[in-house]
C-alpha cells in the first residue's frame, strides 16, 4: 500500500469571475520510502500539490488517502494534527522563529503534538543528526544560511514524520551548503525516510529517485531515475 494515494484530485479557486484550475485531475501514488522531486514551471500547480500533500489545503474534489485513511475532507484542526504528527516541512526561507532559540524552534512540532515529556531530548537528537548540536542556545539570527536550513531540517525530523516535504530547500543556499543539505537528505532517505522535494533546480532533482512533472495543473509525467543514473 502506498503511503499517499491521490485520485483525480482537483483544486479550483475562484478569482473574480474566473475559475483557476490549479490542479485538474491528478492521480498519483507515493510509496513509503520514496524520494521524489516535483518539477514544473511557476504557476504549474506544484505549490498547490505541495500544500495538499502537506495538509495545508484541501482538494475541491477527488480523494486523498494517507496511510490508507481518507484525508480528503479533514477539519482544520485534524489537518493541524497531521502536520504536527505525520509531516515535516523544510522551506526555502527556513521559516525559523527569530525569537526562539534553536532548541525551541526544533521542539515546536512536538509542543503542538502535545509531546512535552522528552521533547528536549528528541530535539537534541534531531539537532545532533544534522550536526547542529553545538548551537542549541543560539538564535536563528546568529546562524548562517546553511546552518539555519540544517536547524529547519532538524525541526522537520523531530517528530519522526512519515513524510518530509521540502519546498525549494536549496533556493537560498550557496553551492557548498546545497551539497551539504542534499547529502543530509540522501542519508535520510537511505534510512527509510519518505521525502518529496519541490524544486526548479535540476541538479537537486537529480538526487531524487523519481521525478514528478507538473504543468498547467496536470501531471505530465513521472519518471524513475535520479541519482542512480
Amino acid at each position: 500500500m502506498a503511503l499517499i494515494e491521490l485520485q483525480e484530485i482537483r483544486k479550483h479557486y475562484r478569482m473574480g469571475d474566473e475559475t483557476v484550475k490549479a490542479l485538474d485531475g491528478v492521480t498519483l501514488d507515493i510509496e513509503a520510502g520514496s524520494y521524489a522531486a516535483v518539477l514544473g514551471p511557476s504557476g504549474s500547480g506544484k505549490s498547490t500539490l505541495m500544500h495538499l500533500l502537506g495538509f495545508m489545503d484541501f482538494p475541491t474534489s477527488g480523494t486523498m488517502l494517507f496511510d490508507g485513511d481518507d484525508v480528503s475532507r479533514l477539519s482544520p484542526s485534524k489537518r493541524a494534527w497531521y502536520r504536527a504528527n505525520r509531516l515535516g516541512f523544510v522551506f526555502q526561507t527556513f521559516n525559523l522563529l527569530p525569537r526562539l532559540s534553536v532548541l525551541e524552534n526544533v521542539r515546536l512540532p512536538l509542543d503542538y503534538a502535545r509531546q512535552a515529556r522528552n521533547a528536549n531530548d528528541l530535539a537534541r537528537e534531531a539537532l545532533d543528526r544534522v550536526g547542529m548540536s553545538h548551537r542549541i542556545e543560539h538564535r536563528p539570527g546568529q546562524l548562517s544560511g546553511g546552518e539555519r536550513q540544517r536547524v529547519a531540517i532538524a525541526r522537520a525530523l523531530v517528530n519522526q514524520p512519515k513524510l518530509i516535504l521540502a519546498d525549494e530547500p536549496t533556493g537560498n543556499l550557496d553551492t557548498k551548503n546545497v551539497e551539504r543539505v542534499m547529502e543530509l537528505f540522501d542519508a535520510l532517505v537511505d534510512e527509510g525516510q519518505t521525502l518529496i522535494i519541490v524544486t526548479h533546480d535540476l541538479e537537486v532533482a537529480q538526487h531524487a529517485r523519481s521525478i514528478i512533472l507538473v504543468r498547467d495543473g496536470h501531471l505530465v509525467g513521472t519518471e524513475e531515475g535520479g541519482h542512480s543514473e
Binding site: P76, S77, A80, W81, A84, L108, P109, Y112
Partner: peptide, 15 residues
C-alpha cells in the same frame, strides 16, 4: 508570518 510558521508545524487555531 510567525503565525503561518507555527501553523505549518502543527499549531491548531486553538493553540
Amino acid at each position: 508570518r510567525e503565525i503561518g510558521i507555527r501553523k505549518a508545524v502543527g499549531a491548531r487555531g486553538g493553540d
